[in-house]
Nucleic acid binder design. Structure first.
Lengths: 217, 217
DNA sequence: AATCCATTGTAACAATTGTTACCCGTTCAA
DNA sequence: TTGAACGGGTAACAATTGTTACAATGGATT
């Protein structure tokens, strides 16, 4: 936990030095708020009004979509160096979140007041690049999600989910119940159990209680 | 067809006067190329390198995604006042198109060289707003597409497709074969025929040869 | 008129996914 | 120690979607 602004500048530099100008990093440290968040923390809900844009320093965040009946779907994970473009959306146009964000792995973030975003756009070229780059990454991530939904069958989606999760959490062991996975993929627990069993038989994973080991990538 | 730059300025003003500064519109008219494109024209293919960003004045464009096997999926339609954010993606980072664009309804567009985009970002506030607004619209459109894929059944997707298409083409009559619809929804012709019959029985549409009439919205 | 071809309708069947029900084993609290 | 709650396995069945096959229709062409 950075003790003061100086320390925060150093902390941000660790992850953003090569992306953002020094002057901008100082501004971020001055007007941003550093936070440490625990796994499982619900950072944002659908309909919440968005006042801050998060910069992710460490850890991982999962971004979910929900329909009217409350059914969920995992959109993508945010990792170190990412920011949430769906949040940036809120600086122009609507100010309500259209997604849910849950900490997937203990995270350190810096919250930036959204009015700064526009201010820095005119002022810092590196900020413009960063913001655009973020939008692009997000658009491509959404494309990927669409491809997955449209072109893959459930067993492929499941396997992709497991390997993807292993990557963002930097661990081949996934600590989830079948029910939780079912929520993320928007299917039922029985279907997940069935397909996990198949994946185990084909030697790609190993099943334990509350735990799945990914063997192949 | 505008005869000269003066006429093009007027033409662009018709659609963008309230969005973009006058000075910017003049610049667009100077460095942009006006084009008229016919329905069915394949404007861009996956893998094409992107050198221009299109501003849509009239008509409609459909944006498709394709997987390795050549299976297609409709992502969304672009309409008057829209631009293609997936194209803007190409100004930073990769320069290859990740989508296919086909004229859905005779269109008039202005092609802007992509290097102008960055130049104008620093120079015109209205351009920044426009570009951000476009990104946001596109992100939300992609979210909508994801919702549709994840939460709707095929009959609902089909009905949504028909009504959506009626809106962008500004006509309740849809001139498509069942096979063409099947491609857009990434399913088979037989499935489309079956579900269309159901929709007809429920009184939402009326079927003809090469033609579908949307009765309810 | 005869023929061809694209389009649509439909039946029969297969594969995938979703649902219900019930099992067993583990964990945890009373 | 007992029982409830949770996590997971599995069978049986239902619903949805995909596939194959073939018939019927209507235009277009010769």
């Amino acid at each position: 936990m950075p003790e003061n602004t100086e320390a925060l500048v150093e902390k941000i530099k660790e992850y953003y030095e090569f992306l953002l100008e020094d002057g901008l990093i100082v501004e971020i440290a001055n007007s941003g708020v550093f936070k440490q968040l625990k796994e499982g923390h619900r950072m944002m809900e659908i309909g919440d009004s968005v006042k801050y844009m998060p910069l992710l320093l460490t850890g991982a965040i999962k971004i979910l979509r929900e329909d009217e009946e409350g059914d969920e779907l995992l959109l993508y994970f945010l990792e170190k160096g990412d920011t949430c473009a769906m949040t940036m959306t809120c600086c122009y146009g609507e100010s309500k979140s259209r997604i849910r964000a849950i900490i997937e792995k203990d995270a350190e973030i810096v919250l930036i007041p959204i009015h700064k975003m526009e201010e820095w756009l005119a002022k810092y070229k590196s900020w413009r690049s960063f913001v655009f780059e973020s939008y692009n990454i997000r658009l491509n991530e959404m494309l990927e999600t669409i491809d997955t939904l449209a072109f893959l069958k459930m067993d492929e989606r499941l396997y992709k989910y497991l390997t993807g999760k292993a990557v963002v959490t930097q661990s081949t062991t996934i600590s989830n119940t079948h029910q939780e996975i079912a929520y993320d993929l928007h299917t039922s627990r029985v279907v997940v159990s069935r397909l996990l069993k198949q994946l185990e038989h084909s030697g790609k994973i190993k099943l334990y209680r509350n735990k799945i080991e990914v063997l192949k990538f």
